[in-house]
Each structure stands twice: as structure tokens, then as C-alpha cells.
Design a protein around this nucleic acid. Structure first.
Lengths: 152, 152
DNA sequence: CCCATATAGTTGTATATACAACTCTTGTAT
DNA sequence: ATACAAGAGTTGTATATACAACTATATGGG
């Protein structure tokens, strides 16, 4: 559905305004699509994101700082996200022996198993973007990168 | 900055995955840019959004249902957002005389004044998208509309 | 060695989001 | 009329987000 119908608004003033609103709206929409699907496995989008980061490091541990740096939403509180994953047995956490300020976080077997399942979800959802061909997907990605460049 | 540097990730598997992650990330980034600027006026992005909707109806009243339908984030609780605006004297709220289930919400002079200021902020931010020309902005908007079409 | 400063996490708190349950009002079928 | 379902908001609660203050540890200069 076009943005105008979606928000019942006739016009957005400028193409820039329409673009900005549309990117925010579509980003929110995407997050809801994903998190809605993830709910059946009892984890949130951010939690899944953290698990993915930990898999990237596996079998090495990651610190909270490293996780925070790579999260989609940097302001989510990594400590508490990891708390949740710990409760579910998806990660282990222990004080780093070299530097006791740090904590080493490692994904568990169970966490890796769960990721396999959520990967499938993600893939299925991505296959539904059939209105966009792969070249366009690439182009959209490039546009997003440029949108965030604010050197001026 | 490219998404790969931003999230310190080498690759995103498929162009669709990269696109999806990038739209979510960029949408969040945009929302933070805007809400950060709005903070100086003591309102949130959603509150500003509601004020804009009310201005669209002005001088007619809007009901909560109408507001909810047009909000960028539909799950935000319109009742409580309006509460906040009411506290600040930016809107008035009273029971609709025709149908006492409804409430009529109208933006105040003060609310309209505030919107003038936040409009400027928005415009300034939009002008900073200098890496994107107007034609590209239009194209991005169209891509977003198509991305949300999931007829298959 | 001691102190100031920087680092790495944790905790607290206010606000926002998601979702369900609840209240009051209206419309409709018997 | 009366009862029952639908409509429009409100409230409650659990979780998440934003941001600041706090604790513990490490480092480097006098």
C-alpha cells in the first residue's frame, strides 16, 4: 500500500519528507514483521541480533562492548539483553580472566540451534520481497548507506 | 558509513538481507536524528506526529481512532500520547457531543505555534540529505512502498 | 606507591511500546 | 423494552528504550 493510503495523508510536502517518513515507517514495519515471527521462539529481534553477533565470534567469546558496537539498536541495554539470553540458556557469561572489568559471553549449543531455526524465518520473510528483484535490493541498500552520509 | 562498517560485519549473506537490515537500521537512525532535535522543544517524535495529524484536521476535531489510524507507529498508545500533549497545553480534549463514546481532540494555538518551530527542524534535517538528489528521494520512496507490498 | 583518569559493566529511573482486559456507549434483533 | 454484540477509549502490566549515575578495575604520571 502506498504511504499516502497507509497514513491517510494526501501529500508529504517534498520528496525528501516523503522519503524520510517512508523509510521510518517501512523500517518499523520490517521490525514488526520480523519480531512477530520470532515471538514463536520466545525471543525478541534484539535478542536474536545479539545471538547472531555471538555466532559471528564463536567459538571465541565476545564482550558486552563488542556486542553493543554491533547491535542494530545501540541504545538497547546489552547487559539486560544478555541477562535474558542467559535465563534461557542461550549464552554463558563469565568474568574475563585477563581483565576482570570485562565479561566473556559465548553462545551455547542451544543458542546455535535456535539461530538455525530463526535463520529460516528470516529467509522465508526475505523471499516474500518478491516485488523487489535482487538488483533493486542492492540498490536500496546503497541508497540507505548514502542517506546516512551527512558530510555536508 | 557503509552498513558493514557501521555494524562491523563483513557480509550480510544476500542482497535482500542486507537491504532489510539496512532499512531497519536507517529507519532507526532517522528516528533518532529527528527525536534528538525535537527534544529541545520537549516533545517526542510520536507526539510531534500526533500534532501534525491534528493540524491536518484543524479546525475540526479528531478522534483517537483517527489519530491511531494515521500514526507512524500504530502501537503507540494514542490515549497516553494525547495525555502528554494535554499536560503541555498543546491540545484540548472533550467528549464528543454526538457520540459520547468518542473524544474530540483539537490542537491549540500553542500547539500550532510549536509545530511551526518543529517544521523548521524537520526541513533543516531534510536539507542535509545532500547525498541524495530529489529524483533519488522519489525513487527511494517508491521502493519503500513496493517493499511493503507482500501480495505473494 | 598513590592518585587521577579512563574503561567496562551494572543499576536506576523515566518514558515508551505491545498487548490484553476492562468500561461505557451505541446499534440491532427479538 | 431487553439483551447482546460491536464500537471507542481507557487502564493495567510486562517488556523495552533512553539516558544518567554508579561500581569496580586498570593504567600512567608524579
Amino acid at each position: 500500500m502506498k504511504l499516502e493510503e497507509e497514513l491517510k495523508q494526501k501529500t508529504f510536502g517534498s520528496p525528501y519528507r516523503r522519503m524520510a517518513v517512508n523509510v521510518m515507517f517501512t523500517g518499523n514495519w520490517l521490525q514488526k514483521e520480523f519480531s512477530c515471527q520470532l515471538k514463536q521462539y520466545g525471543i525478541s529481534l534484539q535478542q536474536n541480533n545479539v545471538l547472531g553477533i555471538l555466532r559471528g565470534q564463536y567459538p571465541n567469546p565476545a564482550t558486552l562492548g563488542l556486542i553493543q558496537d554491533r547491535m542494530l539498536d545501540r541504545d538497547s541495554n546489552a547487559t539486560r539483553l544478555v541477562d535474558k539470553l542467559l535465563e534461557k540458556g542461550l549464552v554463558t557469561r563469565c568474568q574475563c580472566p585477563d581483565n576482570r572489568r570485562k565479561v566473556d559471553i559465548v553462545i551455547t549449543e542451544q543458542g546455535l540451534e535456535l539461530l538455525k531455526k530463526t535463520d529460516t524465518i528470516m529467509q522465508n520473510l526475505e523471499e516474500k520481497f518478491c516485488q523487489i528483484n535482487p538488483e533493486e535490493a542492492t540498490q536500496i541498500g546503497e541508497f540507505m548507506d548514502r542517506l546516512r552520509e551527512r558530510s555536508c
